[in-house]
Write a protein that binds this DNA or RNA. Structure first.
Lengths: 139, 139
DNA sequence: TCCTACATTGGACAAAGTCTAAGTCAAGAA
DNA sequence: TTCTTGACTTAGACTTTGTCCAATGTAGGA
């Protein structure tokens, strides 16, 4: 994670306590927090951090390509720090759990030329939905 | 569209002016309105229709499987009446235009068994993003 | 035509996110 | 080290999107 901070500083990012804390919260794989969750976790370490700063910082990390914004349910967006490994998401329709998954083949190739309608297609996101083992287990 | 109304009546739907108007607004292919847009268009024909009714009706149409809910941008959900033809979406990153597209092959098969983590996967949505011809044209 | 269960309404409420003006501070300059 | 300044942060108002509820209206069967 300190690589991340170094990389950002190299791009002219001013390194503040708030930004550091947000980056630390997002450290780790398979993390998919909402902005509110990031704010709550960041507040544990830096109680005076404001919501606006969390939103600002997340937005910056997204536009710098260090974090991916995921909206799986039409509710709060989630932030995925696993931005340097191409992957998609598998979501439990019941509890909302999210897993990163890796596909066979390139989903871009499933869209034939005549179905592109002259668009310059550059990105594809695939979301699988189903019931996770925990939710389908007899209770 | 009157097939739709007949079908719904067959399922015990009470046919009111409000519901008819909402269904009429959603008539047509390649329509992807937000709830607010549906409300505005419905109000043109039936000025006293309330937002709550539009939300209720859209929700019912979705749970009856007659309309699909699409959230392409993490902002307002859009409602797609093209529910009986399997398709995915192509979105312009600049202007937000949405097109229905048809894929080659089944995207479910791109997710190998070991990548399913015990989920019972039942659904997949694929969203392509790019620049539409109108936005990429020299202005 | 009358009944009544279901539908609609308007407004309050809630969740998620954006904006702004005023104050603070990281990091380069001296 | 201290100073300076423009970038960063803050609190809270505001916006957008959507949900809920109690009161009122009405579709369609008897």
């Amino acid at each position: 994670m300190s690589d991340l901070l170094e990389r950002l500083r190299g791009r002219g990012w001013r390194l503040t306590a708030q930004r550091r804390v947000v980056a630390e919260v997002l450290d780790g794989d398979h993390v998919h927090y909402t902005a509110d969750e990031v704010h709550a976790l960041a507040s544990d370490r830096l109680p005076e951090i404001s919501r606006a700063t969390v939103y600002n910082t997340l937005g910056e990390l997204v536009s710098l390509g260090e974090v991916i914004e995921v909206s799986t349910d039409g509710r709060a967006k989630r932030y995925d720090p696993n931005a340097h490994h191409d992957h998609q998401h598998l979501v439990c329709s019941q509890c909302g759990t999210i897993r990163d998954v890796h596909l066979q083949g390139d989903p871009l190739s499933a869209l034939p030329e005549p179905e592109r309608y002259g668009f310059q297609v550059s990105e594809v996101t695939v979301t699988y939905r189903g019931i996770c083992p925990h939710c389908s287990a007899p209770s």
